[in-house]
Nucleic acid binder design. Sequence first.
RNA 1: GCGCCUGUAGCUCAGUCGGAUAGAGCAUGGGAUUUCUAAUCCCAGGGUCGCAGGUUCGAUCCCUGCCAGGCGCGCCA
Length: 573
Amino acid sequence: MQTLKEILSAHLRAAFQAAFPGADLSGLPLDALPAGDEAFGDYQCNGAMAAAKVLRLPPRKIAEQVAARIPADGLSARAEIAGPGFINLTLSESALARHLEAMQADPLLGIPQPGAGQTLILDYSSPNVAKPMHVAHIRSTVIGDALKRIHRALGCTVISDNHLGDWGTQFGKLIMGYRHFLDPAQFAAAPVHELERIYVLSSQKAEADPAWEDQCRAELVKLQAGDSENRALWRKFMEVSLADLARIYGRLGVSFELTRGESYYHDALPALIEKLQALGLVRESEGALVAFLDDEKLPPCIVRKSDGGYNYATTDLATVFSRVEEFRPDAIIYVTDERQQLHFRQFFAVAQKAGVRTPLRHVWFGLMRLPDGLLSTRMGNAIKLDLLLDEAEKRALEIVKTASPDMPASQQQAVARAVGIGAVKYADLSQNPQSAVTFTWEKALAMDGNSAPYLQYAHARIASVIDKHAERFPGIDFMRVPLDLDTPQARRLALRLARYPDAVRDAAEQEKPSLLADALYDLSQAYSSFYQNVPFLKADAGLRESRVRLCDLAAKVLRHGLDLLGIETPERI
RNA sequence: GCGCCUGUAGCUCAGUCGGAUAGAGCAUGGGAUUUCUAAUCCCAGGGUCGCAGGUUCGAUCCCUGCCAGGCGCGCCA
């Protein structure tokens, strides 16, 4: 169904056209926007000011002409002109109520389906294997997973692919480390931690000792050339790493349609190089094979190293060809940190020259750092993701125990998991992805204010209201009573609910889950205020059902929205 | 040196194609619970939007310069 904003915007456009028939108004911002201040109305249009130059008329004059022609279908009760030429729209209460009832009856909750028929490949998380996940890895994972869910909600077919770093330089260092530093007992007990330990040792030695570094490189070349001993070690590393990753993804509730690491494309690399050569896109330079991108004003892109090995750009190119051929996607989106912007511009340029027509988009996010510097495995100051999640669940459990002492212990545990993990994910998702994140325990574990637990708590209170209504008034179906937005709090809540479908679409268009998180937080605040100040179950029959019905829609939207962020909504907290 | 990004309340951050009196959370101060879950609600204080110009009826937003910080710039990913 159409969103409220779409309906109002269409009305405004029609009114502009009717008022100024010959004029070319395309490209002007004539849309309805949520009013900046509720004192001005529900939605506003700033188009009259923008049109003033084109029409060469005073904006207030234009606004008057337009306001007089807004279709009278009962949706907007008032259109008023204010200031330099704002058109302020106030909706009729009953029309707003009918719109919400339609949303409530729609299994899609009124979310439009612009993505229907489209296939999207989403590449995110993509950790290097043989290293434990640290708090910084959560950004790509959680943002990517939310984008997948959001695009799906808009009708897209989304294939998520975890493009593991399972074939790169670290394996040379790991193989050397394994042979020289391994503690077998530790490896048996906590394999990935032991791999990290020997990796750090081996890397540090490589920095100090060029001979060691050369040996690491040689072991990598042997591995990539198919040496059986190194391949066996690689398989061992992969086995323990994949098991550990699966466990972490399970905790986070994140899943992938495909997990194709760099190694998956290894056999395709020589043919890819031949193809690039045949197209004349690459040439030898200082022993390496390089694509020069002078026309694009980009630095050269190496596709084969002077030692004959391949790098990131090579596998990325092989990957894009494979994906295009196998899935025929309408777009491929890569979610990585900001440091890779240049790499993606180079790689996209080469891919285009090599004939890739599929739109490729790089969605980057800001680095996560600690208050006193960058997180780094090598520097050993990285905080393990498991530790963060453990702490979050622990703190959530304390809260659940005090809030719901009578709840069975197993349920308390389950709620604490949902709340703790939700808090950590939300801390990341609610922030503009592109701003840098300074990790603090306080922020990552926030459980009041603008946080997942606040939203989950609001939802749980609604669920409880609905259950109590069924208990106390058995046989009364609130869905048969029309919505009545009879208080300012109800009206405010109604407007927030009506904005939800637009928020989902905005989040997808801008690839920013934070826009959805913001809208949900706004909604929860409106709900909490409604809940605190307007009685439901104690209201008179009729009004009571109408209010419970509004609660029901709020619960549905919260549950749906949090699900799009990958956050669970327990029925009780 | 070149490129990308960031600079908004004490702290952490929003700010919708340029729009009305720049908003939240945390922290601080005050108030609300015989009532549907107080992880809540209501109220208050707190700002030269890094600095200086420019464009515009109107700039936190666009342009230029400067200052401060982060990241990147052929064989890492």
